[in-house]
Write a protein that binds this DNA or RNA. Structure first.
Lengths: 361, 361
DNA sequence: AAGCGGAATTTGATCGTTCAAAGCCATTGC
DNA sequence: GCAATGGCTTTGAACGATCAAATTCCGCTT
């Protein structure tokens, strides 16, 4: 097998110098059109592609974004990461960036990996998921001035608008609001909410979406709300048990909004076994499972999230990662409005959905 | 922020030459112990890490494996890739390799991406999933002599034992056999099988596992088998419809083995709504959903698959990818025996499974 | 025709590492 | 006593690209 061609080979064939070939590739506008064309011809004639490692060494840019793959795909939501990764990879590719994976066993190990990847000049930036309250990883990356974006608001932190903290998140409140409004629009008023036990930024935000609608539309009192809200640990079986109990006590619920597809799936199993095959339920995440079982769900719009992350990291159209904390007038955060996907589970009569997405009225 | 240290910095501090530092890193056994120790001290003192791109340029090895992320997470099985990726990333890391993602819109585009990644010296090898009958991608990679391993046997190809075709696969027949035996062991004899319509390598292989047991244990005739076998398109709703019909016609089925968790989930929904909450069902893939809904399933042992892929690609303990078609006495294929995970769905009485995995008797 | 200035192109150096070959030094053999 | 040996270390070059500075080109003015 012949050696792969280099800039030199292209240069010789086109009768120009190395640098001109490089310019055609990186800053074509400064090369005279006739020359540019000649070089282009030589490039395609030789099937030349720049050597990524050589370029990375010289430019001191890896053009690579690192992302940690979580150790456990938790419940049915595991596939969120799956789809997010796909969207991120595709958008990154459009900007000449690559996605590199790594794993870590705990937050401390994760920081060790960051250091290793940074020191080895393997990645230019990181994308963080599953952000926690006062996340040690975030503090470390910021202190080291390594570019990064989090998928998820820095809930606990006292500085949600700190311009050095870039984040993209999904507006859960708006999503749950849309779901609740949809049910209200179909004539239901005793709409329950099944969320997570305890309080968390994410959980409180989503519940608020339901609460908003109940108060605005039905004038629910705190007492009403308390009577309609339920909470449990994340998971299908736990949700199922919770709803089974509720139904046993002669519940007057007419419909249900859930904080996740796992919860919704559990609830769905409970109501079906209790003999209410068409009890309306809406989940959150729009996982493949939701689609498979015909569960209405709030879609996080992962495509938009991925695009947003790259915009924060690289600017609107840039092809390289901006340095950490770089000056800019662009917003440092992005809140994506999710979209309700209506399926059989939220409609009174069984209805087939072919495309999976029913347009909003 | 200070520049990152280089070999030169380490060399000066340790009072040796560049190359000696390099040797300590790559071939420590040829360096005198006392020198080695001195260099090691200097390395950790400076927090030195080799610059990955420089090393890659010089060694002409990217130490990176490329894998395509499928465009659509198909059904509940989407998360198989998720878990596989995690296992692969972890095992690769142990051997100093990285996993890089890419996407493609169709097989033709995929080949274009291969070429691009190869020409840019971005990856040393590829891992292919979702192999097809007479896969064009496989032919192209082999013709270009690019190292690769497929996750999945080359079903159609006339040369399953061709030493230049490396593959790792899961023994579906053995897996379904174990599932069927488990049900037989619990006293069921009229065990049905729900597979995919039409014939495919994967589908036929799995069905054979069920068939084996039925013939060996119950002396089933071809007629018996035909009466107990069902098939449909992959998907939860299709399976649900299929089983609903079967139950409507007054079925005498006692238990069911399915070719996938999607099918099993659909079947589960059908039998539960029909009023058989404890009808035993076993799926295949052990997806997070199976765990969530308490569905017994055959686990593909993705950890072993990942380890096997790297062994074929890099040898038993090697730290670099072997050239395509390199001579070796090692086997070129690896058939992993999957493992049955027993949960409530396959047992007569509802049983909680805490750990998720019940040891084989 | 010489001088000027901006556009286009070339030249030399460099990124951080490893390869290939050479060098050094103490030991061994004759 | 001198060459040969072997273990360890150093030196010079190279991997393939881009950066920074120098040079050439070309049209236009004076």
């Amino acid at each position: 097998m012949a050696q792969l061609p280099t800039v030199e080979d292209v240069a010789v064939l086109a009768g120009v110098s190395r640098q001109t070939v490089s310019n055609v590739l990186n800053t074509p506008e400064i090369v005279r059109p006739s020359t540019r064309e000649r070089v282009q011809t030589a490039i395609s004639q030789l099937g030349y592609h720049p050597h990524a490692s050589a370029r990375r060494l010289r430019t001191r840019q890896s053009s690579t974004i690192g992302i940690r793959l979580d150790p456990i795909a938790n419940g049915v939501s595991g596939s969120v990461l799956d789809r997010f990764l796909h969207a991120l990879t595709e958008h990154a590719d459009e900007r000449g960036m690559r996605i590199m994976l790594f794993t870590a066993h705990d937050p401390e190990d994760e920081i060790r990996q960051y250091r290793r990847l940074r020191d080895g000049a393997d990645v230019d930036a990181f994308v963080l998921t599953e952000t926690q309250y006062d996340d040690a990883r975030i503090e470390w990356l910021a202190a080291e001035r390594i570019p990064f974006v989090t998928f998820g608001r820095p809930w606990g932190s006292g500085r949600p608008n700190d311009p050095t903290r870039l984040w993209v998140d999904v507006d859960g409140r708006a999503g749950v609001r849309a779901a609740t409004e949809h049910l209200a629009g179909r004539g239901h008023s005793r709409i329950g909410y099944l969320g997570w036990r305890g309080s968390s930024g994410l959980g409180d935000d989503r519940r608020r979406g339901w609460q908003d609608v109940m108060i605005e539309t039905f004038g629910s009192t705190p007492g009403d709300l308390a009577a309609l809200a339920m909470s449990t640990e994340e998971g299908v079986p736990t949700a199922r048990v919770a709803i089974e109990q509720r139904l046993r006590n002669g519940s007057d619920l007419e419909a249900l909004v859930c904080a996740s597809d796992s919860l919704a799936l559990g609830a769905m199993m409970a109501v079906r076994e209790a003999g209410f095959p068409h009890f309306p339920i809406i989940g959150f995440d729009n996982t493949p499972v939701a689609k498979a079982v015909g569960l209405s769900s709030v879609d996080q719009q992962l495509e938009e999230v991925a695009a947003g992350i790259l915009q924060l990291l690289m600017g609107a159209t840039g092809r390289r990662v901006l340095p950490h904390g770089s000056e800019s007038d662009d917003p440092r955060h992005r809140l994506i409005t999710p979209r309700l996907v209506v399926r059989r589970s939220s409609q009174l009569e069984p209805v087939e959905d072919a495309a999976g997405i029913v347009p909003r009225r």
